[in-house]
Computed example of a mutant assay.
Amino acid sequence: MIGCRAAATPIDQNDKITAQSGELVDREKYQRLVGRLLYLCHTRPDIAYAISIVSRYMHEPRSAHMDAVQRILRYLKGTPGKSLLFRSNGHLTIDGYSDADWASCLDDRRSTSGYRVFVGCNLVA
């Protein structure tokens, strides 16, 4: 994917992926790729939501799931300098925020939730 076009976001906001979206793809290749992206999201929290979506389909990946993984790779290509930045601001206040989109998964009607924890003004989780 060296010559691919960069994407502005890691996942399309209006894209509703289901378990039966498209034809079956190589499961081992998909699992290796998503596994590497899971490791990367420790330093790149901007892709954590997209990775949580594509990791749902590790047992039976389909072409739409692989397309979503490739979009994450295209996003990473366009944002090589993004990572966590820690600054000293003189206080260590801990703030946490959470959100959930109730029953948004079209397969099992479960909600997808996310959270952020800040120490001072630094994102740590």
Rank of each mutant, 00 (worst) to 15 (best):
Leu38Trp: 05
Ser63Phe: 05
Ala64Tyr: 14
Cys105Tyr: 13
Lys29Leu: 15
Cys41Met: 15
Tyr49Asp: 03
Cys41Ala: 04
Ile72Val: 05
Cys41Arg: 07
Arg36Ile: 14
Thr43Glu: 03
Tyr30Phe: 02
Leu85Thr: 11
Ala48Met: 10
Tyr30Lys: 02
Ser98Trp: 06
Tyr75Lys: 06
Ser83Phe: 02
Tyr97Arg: 03
Arg32Ile: 14
Pro80Ile: 06
His91Phe: 06
Leu106Asp: 14
Arg27Phe: 00
Ile72Gln: 03
Ile53Ser: 09
Lys77Leu: 04
Arg44Val: 09
Cys105Arg: 02
Leu76His: 04
Asp95His: 15
Met66Gln: 12
Ser63Thr: 03
His91Ala: 03
Asp99Ser: 07
Tyr49Met: 09
Tyr75Phe: 11
Pro61Thr: 01
Ala48Val: 14
Ile72Leu: 03
Asn89Asp: 06
Tyr57Ser: 00
Leu33Asp: 01
Ser83Ala: 10
Arg62Leu: 12
Ile51Asp: 02
Arg32Thr: 15
Ile51Ser: 01
Phe86His: 09
Val34Glu: 08
Asp26Gly: 10
Lys29Asn: 01
Ile94Ser: 03
Gly78Asn: 08
Pro61Asn: 01
Ile94Arg: 02
Ser98Phe: 08
Cys105Pro: 08
Leu84Cys: 10
Thr93Asp: 13
Ile53Trp: 09
Lys82Ile: 06
Val34Trp: 06
Gln70Ile: 15
Met58Leu: 13
Leu38Cys: 10
His65Ile: 09
Asp67Tyr: 04
Ser55Lys: 05
Val54Tyr: 00
